[in-house]
Design a protein around this nucleic acid. Structure first.
Lengths: 323, 323
DNA sequence: CTGTTAGCGCATTCAA
DNA sequence: TTGAATGCGCTAACAG
């Protein structure tokens, strides 16, 4: 049987379509008509067509999330929380894996103008500055565009500071930073820079390995670096993956962690609710970032003015790679 | 400036709206008008409203993916591939974390009738049989409903068989299965059953720990089980997470893996493209399952008849927990 | 409180 | 080949 429309309901109930519409939208109607409409809806299995509603209201109750790949614990944890908060606001989520391709990112950004979604939350490292038009409800994560573009980030400068303090406190003497960076700048670069500054302020020995992405033979490069600098005993890695690679490299070189060398990563994703932290890490407030991003994008979609820059706090979590 | 509509374009180009519509949809128009329309579209930054199009065509080019939580490597890998294949077909993806709540699953299933999406792919273990109405474009993963409901699954019976063979071949003597199951049946239960059968067919010693979900103090239960059965030297765990917990439990009991005890998990998820497999595992063909599911759901959405049951092959991957 | 009507932006007839 | 008209299903304004 074909899908019932409001007109069918109105006919069956013996009322006008307007009344059915009001019923649907919760406007008060007389008790007797309420009954009739309610019954007609039930017998016809009527479900309102959201496309038609959207055409009138030009609201979709949908937000698109653009990220490099959902197949990565940090992003999937973030996406989980984004969807959760959107859902609490009766919003749906479009998911976009950009794989770093700006064309796909742009395609999704266009969806706002296509009236397919009301706003965008994006974690992106590609060159899309000129696609972010002025009134676009767009929230950027961990990357600054201009003061007009809303963004939320963790306090990446504090990350380096905390990493240094934790390593120094547990006896680190020769510090190193290991990481990589993209040509397009984003705030994660601050992690290494602030770490370096903190070390140098104390005049402690410092080495660094900073690779340009895309990185090949990551672990081999790390091993070569560690061999060339055998005194290193306190390493800060740009993220937890890198930390795992460093851990693996050290093991292969016969060093003990954390006895000989300590490692701190960054992100602090849990992999799943019940798993322990393997590497010590500076934890990003992923859930808080998601909440903040959702609030901002919904406010922007509603045309509200908001504070466009949000820095969230980070914290040190001891795992098994520091003493 | 307000968004331009087809009417605006038509006015500016000095043609009728029908012509603009044809232009957009690639129907041939005269060269001279083609130019005029093309220009008008450019100067007005015209982008067709997909909501209005959807209202006419009742197609959304969107599919919803329902899963327990994207915050889990297996599901996020699956979602990654689903989005990829949908994208290749110009389709968008709605993501739904059900967290095991049937209400939320039902809410998304309704979206087909609401004309918000054209079909559903679902990994679900809750009681929603009676919501899967007949013509619904619905594809189930790893769970059988009825012969009328399309589903794709990996060959879970072969999983247990392969696990046994791999463990036996590398010297396992006393076998054990460790896992948990939900009240709602799904095909993953076949893994343990087929493993048990394979072991018993060879008359080898067998023990099992099968917990009812939700499981509390998982690792403690595992430790108690292992203490009570100290001869166990070859363990098959229902999935890779469970395998990690088993690994951790064994370490805490002072056993070496894989020297003293071998472990095989199941799923074969990696944290991301570039990471290695940690535990030895029976790998599910995640990408192939995603591809198959997408093809099926798009075919169903297009009203085509298809083969409703697809079983995909699994394979053994050696990690660091077998010899 | 309720029925009627006019669009929302577009695709698709039907004439011309 | 094209312009004008009709309607997709719904909401909101208006009149009763």
């Amino acid at each position: 049987m074909k899908k019932a429309t409001m007109k069918d309901v109105a006919n069956l109930a013996g009322v006008g379509v307007g009344t059915v519409s009001r019923f649907i939208n919760g406007t008060k109607v007389k008790d007797s008509t309420y009954q009739k409409v309610s019954e007609a809806i039930k017998t016809l299995d009527f479900i309102p067509d959201e496309t038609a509603r959207g055409l009138k209201s030009s609201m979709t109750n949908t937000v698109a999330l653009i990220l490099p790949t959902i197949w990565h614990p940090f992003f999937s944890e973030f996406a989980y929380h984004v969807e959760k908060f959107l859902s609490q606001n009766k919003y749906k989520l479009y998911l976009c894996n950009s794989d770093g391709q700006s064309e796909k990112e742009i395609e999704y950004i266009k969806m706002v103008d296509q009236n397919r979604c009301d706003g965008i939350i994006a974690i992106t490292y590609t060159d899309i500055e000129n696609c972010i038009s002025d009134g676009l409800p767009f929230v950027s994560i961990d990357r600054f565009f201009t003061h007009d573009v809303a963004y939320v980030a963790s306090d990446n400068r504090k990350v380096g500071q905390l990493a240094y303090e934790a390593l120094a406190q547990s006896g680190g003497r020769h510090f190193a930073y290991i990481g990589s960076h993209n040509e397009i700048k984003n705030r994660t670069m601050d992690r290494g820079e602030s770490f370096e500054e903190a070390v140098k302020k104390e005049n402690a020995p410092f080495s660094k390995l900073d690779m340009l992405e895309p990185v090949y033979a990551n672990k081999e490069q790390i091993k070569a670096f560690l061999k060339a600098n055998p005194d290193i005993d306190a390493i800060f890695a740009i993220n937890d993956y890198e930390a795992l690679d460093v851990l693996s490299a050290l093991n292969e070189l016969g060093k003990n962690v954390p006895e000989d060398v300590q490692i701190i990563g960054c992100d602090g994703m849990k992999m799943s609710v019940e798993r322990d932290y393997i590497v010590s890490t500076i934890k990003q407030p992923i859930e808080a970032m998601a909440k903040c991003a959702v609030e901002m994008v919904l406010a922007l979609a509603a045309g509200k003015e908001i504070c466009k820059e949000q820095l969230l706090d980070v914290s040190y979590i001891k795992g098994r790679t520091t003493r």
